[in-house]
């Protein structure tokens, strides 16, 4: 009887210690990039992806493209300008801009030109080619494609808090501006609203 009791205690101890140790170890689970996981309620990759997909789908479905193609006989060249973060969160605007660039390029409906910072690096490389590359492989200066439209925008937010509950509202405004005459050819808006409840108790 005593041996049986000792065995049970030993088994329980092992299970408890094992459980504690398991609780202390880091766990990693791989997941699909498009899978949505909200941890803190802050702006995350899902917000960035959903906004860029929906807004680019909207901009590409509007009549400004057909008007431009009919008038100019070529696809419009677009550049992404500054997306201002006016929200209360430190949002990585670069991932958002990256998502939009990907959607625009992959649509096949517009041509896309490099941003000003990227252009600087490419021009530097072209200057280097003039000195060091063979004539057959050299790319000449002054043959860049100029953008016809610039996509600009802002991310704004409103936070309403009561105790442990927050309503987080994000408004993303994008505008497509003609480089030729400053006309706004498209204005898009996407709103995201989240209800975030923080825990009242912890261990």
């Amino acid at each position: 009887m005593k041996n049986k009791l000792t065995g049970v205690i030993t088994l329980a101890s092992v299970l408890v210690v094992g459980g504690v140790l398991q609780g202390c170890s880091t766990s990693v689970e791989r997941m699909a990039a498009e899978e949505s996981v909200d941890l803190s309620g802050d702006w995350n990759d899902t917000d960035s992806r959903l906004v860029s997909e929906e807004m680019i789908a909207d901009v590409l479905s509007r009549p400004w493209i057909s008007s431009f193609v009919n008038g100019q006989g070529k696809q419009p060249a677009v550049i992404v300008g500054e997306i201002r973060n006016l929200s209360y969160e430190h949002i990585n605007v670069n991932t958002f801009v990256g998502d939009m660039e990907r959607e625009l390029i992959n649509s096949g409906k517009v041509e896309f030109v490099a941003s000003s910072s990227e252009r600087g690096e490419i021009r530097e490389e072209r200057r280097d080619q003039e000195l060091h590359s063979t004539e057959a492989t050299r790319n000449a200066m002054g043959r860049e494609v100029g953008a016809d439209f610039m996509l600009k925008g802002s991310i704004n937010s409103i936070l309403d808090t009561e105790g442990k509950t927050q309503v987080r509202y994000y408004q993303i405004d994008l505008t497509l501006i003609s480089m030729a005459d400053n006309r706004k050819v498209w204005v898009g808006q996407k709103k995201i609203k989240k209800l975030v409840k923080k825990p009242g108790l912890r261990w």
Binding site: K198, P199, R202
Partner: peptide, 8 residues
């Protein structure tokens, strides 16, 4: 932020 929750 985590500590704002009460620990019994």
């Amino acid at each position: 932020t985590k500590l704002e929750a009460l620990s019994l």
